[in-house]
Nucleic acid binder design. Structure first.
Lengths: 358, 358
DNA sequence: GACGTAAATGTAAAGGTTTACATTTGCCCA
DNA sequence: TGGGCAAATGTAAACCTTTACATTTACGTC
């Protein structure tokens, strides 16, 4: 009889079910299930028969049936405003890697920065009973017309949550900014401008705080400068244009991110200045483009893949039932020194494109 | 009675099921299911009651149960060697967008170029009964120890399949290379080198073919030149080093991709040459970094998001039962002219770092 | 040798949906 | 008014798994 079963298996065209395995191993399906999930509960000899049957049939459990029964899928939903953002995609890799290693799948959601699309995903997540969520957005999407849905365990990355108690995994922004400032100070800079909008994003706000702290610690409160900029390349360039309408120029620019720094560099180059001879510039993030600027941008590298893995590992622990042991996990920022920082130019600088300042 | 049901609904903590809806609408669950999937089969008045009940309960079908019953999930699995590759991530966006618009989810798999990991995903896909697959890898992962699994409908992007009949959606590589060559010819170049390895990747091979065709059409068969390079920045730089050991230099470099072009530019700059004064350089792909080089890289832009959307749309059509109407969908490449192409330098060039050539 | 106990295994229900088939309803026409 | 037919709806099975509970088996002890 066993023989017959072994023989007619290749005829089957649909994937093997637990029943096929049970039949072949001559046990009940319950025992097969147990052999898989609680091996210590089944006799060694039986286990062996079952293992063999599994190998022969190529059985792997139907995840849908399993999820249905368990009331929870093995999918983690990652919601990001822009998956192609070079800051995000390596995090996705880290997330995916860690998830896979634990038999979970990573489902991606892309909101394009549109909170409405977030609501869609909420529905989707609900329907799919995602086991957990990773949020890149800094807020929980919610539909005002519906009662708040129960969220699965969630972890925030990149941008800490504005409200609520969702744990955050990311780089230590404050410390990163501090490191950059120290570098500029070490080179002798005293008039340093921070370029960025510290209100829009909490992560950027923290960079600003690091800057402020460093400035205060060095006793330079009066000579600091802050220029608003929206965090884009264009914004960086525009900030430079506005700056040169003024008289008091800094000798260095600490930019809230690399895009801004690139814009600043382009703005300065366009005016005929040289970086780092005339001005020093620093970025933040170490996006892949940073190394393609000339000179290469001195910046802070985010340990992106590590952030992803760490975040997923934390989520996994939360799924095991342990609460998040700490609200924030801050990873060490790496200072990447390339070519955009040098000693300050002698003051007053020979202004180009404008009459010389007083 | 209807009242009572409306009232006790808010007490429920688990998501509403089809049964909740049916009870509230005072119909059977079969009718609810029909109202959703084949609305024309249910009376307008009933439909209305049901719609109302759905709205009240906030019902959305349990995707797990649905998939189990249907024997197929509403997940599309995308397998890419590297999700963070700037060439890939915008395609992912396109894929995701189109998938979402049709109620499907995008599951991502990251092989890190390791074929073994592909096998894992095959298993995963099997267990999750993915409705379809998108392959970035150019081959179907397979486990030699297992009988070939039945693949769901699949579409290849980025890299055409080496064997088999999986339809491909991508840019017209041949035409792109041709356009670049025409541009160089129009600037007066006659000695043009192709840099890249045309064997490793089929897409690269096609670029090479476009190059060869253009060269032949211009009657320049003898003066062409091909330098092997592995498609990385380092490879591009190395190719330049090797080149300068020889006597006969080209005046322009048609690089198989942007990374190679960046390497070439860095190699040339390191030797003291100026691009485009001494040499012209072109890339392919228009990765985000291309615009950060100085001068900006003249290259071919891949319509990446469109590729993703088109690929998913095709897959969706295949899921509807229509076979792939054509094996290849080639999207138009865009020529992006920046600053790395100019007229050829007078020959012989004053060699730097080496004795002048004969 | 019988009994008690623990270990191993089996039985059956439940999870939410879709759909073939069965039943009811409503309507038209003779 | 009743018979026939189409439209609308209902009933119940199936998809595959996990697990509480029930049953069998094995073994040690008196």
């Amino acid at each position: 009889m066993g023989n017959i079963k072994t023989l007619d298996l290749p005829l089957k065209t649909t994937p093997a079910t637990i029943e096929d395995v049970a039949r072949l191993a001559e046990v009940s399906i319950a025992t097969v299930s147990r052999a898989i999930h609680m091996p210590e509960k089944v006799a060694a000899s039986t286990r062996q028969k079952i293992d063999h049957a599994i190998a022969v049939t190529g059985y792997s459990a139907n995840a849908m049936a399993r999820s249905l029964r368990l009331g929870r899928s093995n999918m983690i939903l990652a919601i990001a405003p822009d998956i192609s953002d070079p800051n995000f995609s390596p995090i996705l890799i880290g997330l995916e890697k860690e998830a896979r290693a634990n038999g979970l799948g990573l489902l991606i959601g892309h909101t394009q920065g549109d909170p409405l699309r977030g609501i869609e995903y909420l529905k989707f997540m609900n329907a799919h009973q995602a086991a957990g969520m990773i949020l890149f957005t800094g807020y929980v999407p919610s539909d005002p017309n519906q009662p708040a849905p129960r969220l699965p365990p969630s972890v925030a990355v990149v941008e800490p949550m504005a409200h609520g108690s969702i744990p955050f995994v990311g780089v230590d922004d404050r410390l990163g900014a501090r490191k950059l400032l120290e570098l500029l100070l070490a080179h002798g800079h005293r008039r340093i401008a921070f370029i960025g909008d510290s209100r829009a994003r909490l992560a950027h706000h923290r960079r600003r705080i690091g800057f402020d702290e460093g400035v205060a610690a060095a006793g330079l409160r009066d000579s600091q400068m802050v220029l608003d900029s929206d965090g884009t390349l264009e914004g960086g360039r525009a900030a430079i244009e506005r700056l040169f309408l003024r008289d008091d120029l800094p000798t260095a620019f600490l930019c809230v991110n690399d895009q801004t720094a690139a814009g600043v560099m382009m703005g300065l180059t366009a005016r005929g200045y040289d970086v780092p001879k005339d001005f020093s510039v620093t970025g933040f993030d170490d996006i892949p483009q940073a190394n393609f600027l000339s000179p290469g941008l001195t910046t802070i590298r985010q340990p992106r893949t590590a952030i992803g893995q760490e975040a997923m590992a934390l989520l996994l622990r939360m799924l095991e039932g342990e609460g998040a042991e700490q609200p924030e996990t801050l990873l060490m920022p790496d200072l990447i020194v390339r070519g955009t920082v040098g000693p300050p130019a002698p003051w007053p600088l020979n202004r180009k494109g404008f009459a010389k300042g007083s």
